[in-house]
């Protein structure tokens, strides 16, 4: 292992509000432990800013264990930073060099407007889910959990898709700001399970329409989303969603 403490130069995007013009500010930070997480490094920066009477950097974060999907940050040109399969909160400073300059930006996509500094509005993702990301079953209506066996392979694949944390890295990484990896993960989960069948066609149609309406771009198969997804959601879900969509809009009776 290299040095235990790092001296860093941070270039951080500062933007007062949605309509204000933003820009980079440069900060020097000394003696950051390599054992600190990236967000703890940001905490140290903010503590310094506060004690010197300056406005701390706003950034989204919550669980700090890689599952809530709240943290974002574009670090040195990559969503969630340089380590594959890792959210910003689980990225640790040992992956950086002493003396390094680190550039930190918010997610950049038209459907994700900046609220302040590194915080963006991702409510568009909720709206897509509201359009059809569910099985219509009221509480109390359910048959016994084992009434319908589901082949293990299908259940496992549905789980793989359902593991999406909704962070938005796929959109941020995509040159088209496409949300297709995110949307296809939910479409796939339900398309693979018997519970999802009754609304299968309607669901994919509604979710795709909402995605388009909110201004997300289309997929051109560059694969950046899959490469940057902290949870390893497979791009094959997009292929499945395209099949589902075609099947839904071209099928007789639609």
């Amino acid at each position: 292992m290299s040095k235990e403490n790092l001296n860093l130069t941070l270039k951080v995007w500062r933007q007062k509000g949605k309509k204000d013009k933003g820009g980079f500010e440069t900060y020097k930070l000394k003696g950051v432990s390599t054992h600190a997480s990236f967000l703890e490094m940001m905490d140290i920066l903010n503590e310094e800013l506060i004690t010197t009477g300056k406005d701390p950097v706003a950034f989204d974060h919550d669980c700090r264990e890689g599952i809530c999907g709240m943290c974002s940050m574009y670090i040195n040109g990559r969503a969630h930073g340089p380590q594959r399969g890792t959210t910003t909160c689980q990225l640790h400073m040992r992956h950086f060099e002493d003396g390094e300059t680190i550039t930190i930006e918010p997610w950049r996509a038209t459907p994700f407007p900046v609220i302040k500094d590194l915080v963006v509005d991702r409510s568009a993702f909720d709206k897509i889910q509201q359009a059809g990301g569910y099985v219509s079953v009221n509480t109390g209506n359910a048959p016994d959990g084992n009434a319908v066996p589901i082949p293990k392979a299908d259940a496992d694949e549905a789980f793989n898709a359902a593991a999406c944390i909704g962070c938005g890295a796929c959109v941020a990484a995509c040159k088209n700001a496409s949300a297709m990896l995110f949307v296809s993960a939910k479409v796939s989960q339900f398309a693979l399970l018997p519970q999802g069948q009754p609304e299968r066609k309607e669901r994919v149609g509604k979710m795709v329409a909402k995605m388009d309406e909110l201004g997300f771009g289309n997929c051109t198969n560059t694969g950046a989303c899959e490469a940057e997804c902290p949870k390893g959601i497979s791009i094959s879900n997009i292929a499945r969603m395209n099949r589902e969509y075609l099947g839904a809009v071209l099928a007789p009776g639609n």
Partner: peptide, 22 residues
Amino acid sequence: ASIIDQCVAQGVPFARDYGGLL
């Protein structure tokens, strides 16, 4: 017990054995 039934009906992908049961 009703919780499990409800969640399965919502499409929660619980772990299953090779016979497809929970």
